[in-house]
């Protein structure tokens, strides 16, 4: 589960500050895909950046975990936040952001080696999940291909598998269909939905494209940094 509680984020603008996120509260439950939509510049990606611990909010909390194993990511040091991303958060970027030198399989294997001090056991566990995830996203036969040998949809599927290979509690997805046509976009959204449900992941998904809204479990709208209306009626805004 991930819960943003009264999060406010501002950026400097000359002598003043611009409010990017204004007292936002949002909850993403396990096994659900929560869509975050809104016009360009509304602050939806800033919310995702705060959830990903890439931006520290001016105020408010970012709770990640379940029950007694709950962490307020907004209070973590830079080093602790990096460790949190490495172990408990998966990120799928707008562009697939795959490393050009690595094959599809290696894009997933690198997740076991990010810490520079990852234990052999953990590495072995992640390595064992690589083939299973490549199979889950339908890329087993493309596992040995490098980025430039994959299509846009295949790259995004590798990115999704990379985001899940370390079994994160939270998956953060930024505009996953923006570079894809309708048909491929729909397949990617279905894939994210299926994997979220299968793996009981709390997924926050930023999108401005509501053509695939039926794959979302919850949907909230962001306007001028505020979470305004729950479009699907199931989103939690408090």
């Amino acid at each position: 589960m991930i819960q943003l509680q009264n999060v406010t984020l501002t950026f400097p603008d000359g002598e003043n500050r611009i409010t990017a996120v204004d007292n936002a509260t949002l909850r993403g439950n396990n096994g659900t895909v929560t869509g975050i939509t809104g016009p360009s510049g509304s602050g939806k990606s800033s919310i995702l950046a705060v959830a990903a611990t890439l931006l520290r909010p001016d105020s408010g909390g970012v709770l990640i975990g379940n029950g007694s194993d709950m962490t307020d990511a907004a209070q973590l040091s830079k080093h602790e936040a990096t460790q949190l991303r490495r172990e408990r958060i998966g990120i799928v970027f707008q562009q697939s952001n795959l490393l050009p030198a690595l094959t599809a399989r290696e894009q997933l294997q690198v997740m076991a080696r990010l810490g520079g001090g990852t234990s052999r056991n953990k590495r072995a566990k992640i390595d064992a999940r690589v083939d299973e995830l490549l199979d889950a996203v339908g890329l087993t036969e493309h596992a040995g291909k490098r980025t430039h040998q994959l299509s846009g949809g295949q790259r995004q599927r590798v990115a999704i598998a990379r985001g899940l290979v370390h079994e994160p509690e939270v998956l953060l997805v930024d505009e996953p269909t923006s570079a894809l046509d309708q048909e491929r976009g729909a397949k990617i959204m279905e894939l994210i939905s299926r994997l979220t449900h299968e793996r009981d992941t709390a997924t926050l998904l930023v999108t401005h494209d509501l053509a695939h809204r039926d794959t979302l479990d919850d949907l909230v709208t962001v306007l001028d940094g505020r979470i305004t209306t729950p479009v699907a009626g199931r989103a939690l805004t408090r």
């Binding site: 990903a52 890439l54 080093h79 990096t82 460790q83 949190l84 991303r85 490495r86 172990e87 958060i89 990120i91 970027f93 952001n97 490393l99 050009p100 690198v110 997740m111 990010l114 810490g115 520079g116 001090g117 990379r162």
Partner: peptide
Amino acid sequence: AGDMAVLKALGATTGSLVR
């Protein structure tokens, strides 16, 4: 630099990238 940013976002430490 772009790849470094991605690896950091995914959880790589600066020390491991420097090494």
